[in-house]
Simulated scan of single mutants.
Amino acid sequence: MTVIGVTSMKSTEPALSEPARAKVNLTLRVRGRRVDGFHDLESVVAFADCADRLTLTPGAELSLVASGPRAQECGEVADNLVLKAARLLGERVAHLKTGIFALDKHLPVAAGIGGGSADAAAALRLLAGANGIALSDPALMEAARLTGADVPVCVRSVACVMTGVGEVLQPLGLPAMPGVLVNPRIAVATKDVFAALGLRNGERHAGVSDGIEAIAWPEAGAPIGDWLAMLSAGFNDLEAPAIRIQPVIGEVLARLRATGARLSRMSGSGATCFAIFGDETEALRAAQTIRRDHPQWWVHAGTLS
């Protein structure tokens, strides 16, 4: 059990629960590597309707227990981002009330869909609710940023353009889009993919031109086709290096593209890939076919928004 200096919460206080939705990078450009070693990113981010669930039970000690079908993939509890986020917030908020976190783990790990980051963001939302802290509070957002690059965008879990090292967020009126997520059950370490990209400190990424912040995105309520036309012009700069590390990612993409998807791409640093379809029936049919042909793969059909 992990313990930090916090204020006890009354045992009569009810448990709080939050979903931790999967993050999907619809586009991902790496503009360069800063002198401090961090990478400058530009990404259109959406969130799927598949999620882990995190519960906070009031208590005097900060701890975490994990269950669910992916619990064994979480690694050492002491290294979990849920506890890291809570500690970082506790360093910035005096007398932070905390307790026992229980994680029901369903999302694959090291999968490019921010599973650990989403869990950490859910922890910050739970602690914010238990302590009367606004989600926009600078202390909370600093704790999110220091926990990991994907944590700030996962705090709100709404579609946006994410830039900088993940801390600059511009909301987007993205419509709900029928989609399928596929992970070949192969873990891919983000650091290995960025290393394979091969940028040195202070180096800009060749071929990356004007930023996406200035793009005139479709207005809220615009047809899906308008969004797909613009998203299809995007890239994931990590896709090629990830495929070099794990060629099965290329197989997943080929399988998705063979279903007639309107857009398919790798998310984050992989290995999860997504496809967007014209309607829910097409998405479900594609997911069923892929599950039948590749029963060892993780497949989810649902909505991205």
Rank of each mutant, 00 (worst) to 15 (best):
C74E: 06
H205L: 13
N80R: 00
S267Y: 01
S8C: 15
C74R: 08
N183S: 06
S43N: 07
L16G: 05
V3T: 13
R265V: 12
A196H: 11
K23P: 04
A233G: 10
G278I: 08
P108A: 02
I186F: 11
S17Q: 15
P152W: 05
L56W: 01
R92Y: 06
M141D: 09
R262Q: 13
G225Q: 14
V30H: 00
A187M: 12
A22R: 00
V3G: 15
P218N: 05
A176Y: 04
P69E: 13
R185F: 07
V165L: 08
I245P: 14
D279G: 04
R31H: 14
V299S: 02
P178S: 05
L238H: 01
R156W: 15
M230D: 14
E18Q: 11
N131H: 09
D36F: 08
G37S: 01
F194L: 03
M266V: 04
H106T: 12
A214K: 14
W227F: 08
I249Y: 01
P218T: 09
E18C: 06
A176V: 11
P171W: 11
V153S: 07
S305F: 12
K97A: 15
G116L: 00
Q288M: 14
T289C: 10
R21A: 11
A102L: 10
M1P: 13
A206F: 09
A286N: 03
A71P: 06
S8R: 15
L64W: 01
A258P: 10
K84C: 02
A301W: 02
F38P: 00
V153T: 14
E13L: 10
L81H: 00
R265G: 14
Q296C: 11
Q72T: 15
V82H: 00
A94S: 12
A283Q: 01
A195C: 12
L228F: 10
I249Q: 02
T57I: 06
K23L: 03
F47H: 04
T57R: 08
T259D: 07
K84T: 07
A220V: 13
L256P: 13
G207Q: 07
A71Y: 08
M266W: 05
R185P: 10
W297G: 05
I249P: 01
D192Y: 09
V182C: 05
G260Y: 03
A51C: 11
V248C: 10
E13H: 14
G211L: 05
D150Q: 06
W297R: 04
G132S: 10
G116D: 00
V180Q: 02
V82W: 00
P108R: 01
L228T: 05
V151S: 03
V44T: 11
V44R: 08
A78P: 06
